[in-house]
Design a protein around this nucleic acid. Structure first.
Lengths: 331, 331
DNA sequence: TCGGTTGCTGAGATCGGTTGCAATAACACT
DNA sequence: AGTGTTATTGCAACCGATCTCAGCAACCGA
């Protein structure tokens, strides 16, 4: 590859490099014959424009960072997959940035992306703390958050309605005949985790029931602890709502190891709608988040903000996904 | 941010930009006082060099693409996690590229990365076909493959010893008393899938046994089909080796839905060692691949090749990870 | 004191594009 | 034919670094 630059193409096509440039990035500004000729020549040479050089000059690129705390978590993996597609469809290239929850790394990615002239970025929930770093980043660039942001309505967000999700779960379980429904909370200090828990608390209280929080911890082992708590109860609930699918997996696994069967002995419902849930044992009933939609919308919001400066907060509706981990309560 | 360029810093520090450049990228070429002064000034201004501009001029960047077919598959997610870390440790920035198995996309990523002056790339197993696209890419750049590459010993690879992995699985099962051990194959036409299957076939034959292939299909539903096959047999095996953890999950799930319990009715062992397996029901016994090591080594190989042109083929040893999905055969 | 090193810094071309501005061509109209 | 547009294309500066080459000062030995 004798370094295919724009000048090479220009020479080969017998025009000036600015014309070649226009042929690619502003087609209407070049006589169509000329443009077609140039494109043909370029094609023949196997030439593509350097995104680097473009970004440098234009001061804006098509790289859009997706910042997630842990790609190993299937939720983020599915989000990443959806967003990759969404980004691709709109001519962007998604750059996955994994922080492992390290705020320093988050910061590093922010500035790196700033330097890459990313037109905007997408941040998925890790901790609430983000908002500070975000402020700095958002100074020059735009961010949209897949979660809520505390005290900063200036950043667009897309979330799913936690309260409605819990409502759906509760209704499903009640419809099956359950009256005693426990709850195991989710990971870290994210808003979504908090919201779901609050919703559970309020909704059960509202309907005259007594909330049964099996574990309100905030790490990955909440599921296991919740299961243990369940086992120690004299009068355990007949159904359990897990704050998310991963926790549900852990609950079922831990329960299974103690000989408690799902859904025969206790029903368990998750929250997320991971594809993986279909392959679980038993297949997990869950409240499905429209992950793919979230990806699309996140990008739309970002673009919209870039254009008219609008800051929207979209709230999506979750859906019930009935599989095998729930059934009527044991008689 | 009034566009912090190297010239701004230069002016502020009262030196020429080339000196600033050197202060950052070739410290020993600048008088230490000068350098410290420059660094201090830069620090104060909050200046960082533009990776874009650097890459453009140097014709080499620190972006290293990791090309995977599907990030939703936990194996690739874990690999990505490990490699992100490994890359980071060495001053690179991993760029995750998800192809969804689409060769066109793979190709697109290759040329994009070429344009980004990536010093090398890492490709994780998707299909064998890759080798062609790779040739083109490898022309200007280096690639290391996490799998084997057919008929092209010129690209470094890191793999784990499939034969040994299957041996370990077989030994574990036999040690538990199993004599009739079935096999369910893995995804797509990757070498690893092929190797594991071959190893199973050879090793069982070698020890005088009869191979029982429950499904040799090549898609994600192999697990389900394997389970169905199992159910239809008059004399089903007492243990099953799944080509990888995901398949094992599917097998157990499908079996569970038909009332077959693991490990009470049949033992199942996976291959991969996914963290997720620990949260499965039951926790999955599996042959663990040293994923983190693979990441480290892949990058090492790439760097080594860049330096002395050596092309190594590293083969790692898998380990047995006993959890709850295997036990002695039913009497 | 003078030629030869050595150490450090400045100049300016260059990487691969983009873009405002000027120049030229082509076409319309009086 | 003369003048006013309008469509195309060339020119050259610029984006933010890197790097070779040259200049200059201090230092060495004879």
């Amino acid at each position: 590859m004798p370094d295919l630059s724009i000048d090479v193409v220009a020479k080969a096509a017998g025009v000036h490099r600015s014309t070649v440039s226009r042929a690619f990035s502003r087609p209407e500004a070049v006589k169509s014959e000329t443009r077609e000729h140039i494109l043909r020549v370029a094609e023949g040479l196997g030439y593509t424009m350097s995104p680097l050089a473009q970004a440098l000059r234009r001061k804006t690129s098509t790289f859009i960072p997706l910042i997630v705390p842990d790609i190993t978590n299937p939720f983020f993996a599915e989000l990443a997959k959806a967003m990759t597609q969404a980004a691709d469809d709109r001519g962007y290239q998604l750059l996955l940035c994994v922080t492992n929850g390290d705020p320093a790394k988050t910061d590093g990615y922010f500035t790196a992306m700033q330097a890459m002239y990313a037109p905007f970025g997408i941040v998925a929930p890790s901790t609430k703390v983000d908002s500070e770093a975000m402020k700095r980043f958002a100074f020059g660039h735009k961010v949209v958050v897949i979660d809520r942001v505390e005290g900063d309505a200036s950043v667009p967000t897309v979330t799913v309605d936690s309260r409605q999700g819990i409502t759906i779960a509760l209704d499903h379980l009640r419809g099956l005949g359950h009256t005693s429904i426990g709850y195991v909370s989710g990971i870290a200090g994210t808003h979504t985790a908090q919201d779901r828990m609050d919703a559970y608390l309020q909704l059960t209280a509202l309907s005259g029931g007594t909330p049964i929080v099996l574990d309100s911890g905030s790490d990955l082992d909440a599921g296991t602890r919740g299961a243990e708590h369940f086992l120690q109860m004299d009068n355990p609930p007949t159904a359990i709502i897990a704050a998310n699918d991963m926790v549900a997996f852990a609950v079922i696994s831990a329960l299974g190891q103690r000989g408690v069967r799902v859904p025969e002995d206790v029903s368990v419902i998750g929250f997320d709608g991971l594809a993986l849930g279909a392959r679980f044992n038993p297949p997990l009933t869950t409240v499905r988040q429209p992950i793919a939609d979230m990806g699309d919308i996140a990008i739309e919001l970002a673009e919209k903000q870039n254009i008219d400066g609008s800051v929207d907060h979209i709230v999506l509706e979750p859906q019930l996904l009935v599989r095998g981990s729930t059934s009527g309560p044991r008689k």
